[in-house]
Design a protein around this nucleic acid. Structure first.
Lengths: 233, 233
DNA sequence: ATCGCGCAAATTGCACACAAAGGCCGATTC
DNA sequence: GAATCGGCCTTTGTGTGCAATTTGCGCGAT
């Protein structure tokens, strides 16, 4: 799944980067967790230097917060940031499907169809989330547009964080049927339809997973915000 | 111009980052230039460690290429990457103006109008390019959408690189009149118009500065590429 | 004269050591 | 008894040294 192009870069620092990224996306490290340089380095068998480099990269990707003299923590986006992020994501992913509509090769279609099948079969929630995200990154990948790929990857990754924080426990975050419909319009070459479907799809996620439970979610929100401000948990 | 949020982060490493970024965008360091860690550090009065951190950040922003064991060079995007980049930029900046249409405060309008006036008055080419870019980043800034701001900033910066490499010497890269029209539709709250204008505006840049003169541009292109390969200016 | 081999210089990769800043906890004072 | 001050301890910030890799050059062989 990790692309070859990611494997270039400087050897071990990239390895640390991937390890941490994976840990964060798997929620082995939950948002807000402290990320002390030396304990991470110790655990991974490298020096602080490399951990530091990885942390800088991760902060640049928006997955960790890096506060001066206070160290790194797993990013804890606000609900507001989350909504804005999905807005940005929508703009970019619309470009993705518009670019792809009617241009998919047979091989690509097969890959995507297989992936959707895998999503459909998956039972475990965490894995299911990862697969859903991968569907989006795979689409981006197929555009062959480097900056687009990069940003969509980043945004999808951060979306995981958002959903981890604010998502409802068992909302099927990406409806598999929507992925299938999307693929169908892409094959049919209906760019406009695909764009609309993607917009609707992402909008569904925000309304389905983020918006509802506004009342008690807000309470929790406010509490955690203040807790952080006071330096509590 | 540099935002406060950029000034947070770790003091001196950020300073190095900004210095290099500025140098690159001003074309004091032209695309393809080598960026040895120690000579930069010596020049700026810091150690390689900080330079390294800055280079990692810059590579993450796509302004420098970082190749394993081969060091850092100022990024040298291909023409293809350039076109893709502008495609991505278009998607995001359409979101920017759609978000902003009819929502600008009086203060914001004044700031933008003043900036356009400054652009209009500017005679020097390099400064004029910078101002034109700043107009776009200012717009993004006003959306208050963190990820959107970040990406537009990055893309605008990289656009400078592209234009430096492939732009025609005296093409007015951003027609000031187009900025004015854009602002007018934003004030009028015509989101659709603004979006179209932005798309047209960016498309103009690519066709005006990138696409035309395909023949001799290609020649020059090949020449500069080979020149760099041979270590010539 | 050209090609190839190998050594030397330059540059990066990485770790460690020291300096400084922040946080925690106990002591002291009101 | 609570609040504040002070010092220790933990964690980050930064410089430097050494090993490894790459690049460039020169010498020798064909």
């Amino acid at each position: 799944m990790a692309k070859k192009v990611d494997d270039l870069g400087r050897g071990r620092s990239q390895a640390v980067h991937r390890a941490l990224k994976r840990a964060i996306l798997d929620q082995a490290l939950s948002p807000g967790s402290k990320l002390p340089e030396d304990s991470i380095g110790e655990r991974l068998g490298v020096s602080r230097t490399l951990v530091r480099e990885a942390l800088v990269r991760l902060s640049e990707e928006g997955l960790v917060d890096l506060r001066p003299n206070k160290g790194a923590t797993v990013a804890r986006p606000t609900l507001e940031e989350g909504r804005n992020l999905f807005l940005t994501r929508m703009a970019l992913e619309r470009l993705v499907v518009e670019t792809l509509a009617g241009k998919l090769t047979k091989e690509q279609i097969d890959i995507l169809a297989a992936h959707i099948a895998a999503e459909d079969a998956e039972k475990e929630h965490a894995t299911s989330i990862r697969l859903a995200g991968e569907f989006h990154t795979m689409l981006a990948q197929m555009t062959n547009n480097a900056s687009l790929i990069r940003y969509v990857n980043e945004l999808v990754a951060r979306s995981s964080l958002i959903l981890a924080l604010y998502g409802r426990p068992h909302s099927s975050d990406c409806a598999v049927s929507e992925h299938q419909e999307l693929l169908d319009s892409l094959i049919a070459g209906k760019a406009e339809d695909a764009s609309k479907l993607m917009a609707h799809h992402l909008d569904s996620i925000t309304t389905r997973a983020l918006l509802p439970r506004e009342d008690d979610r807000n309470i929790k929100d406010v509490l955690t915000a203040y807790a952080a401000a006071e330096g509590l948990a």
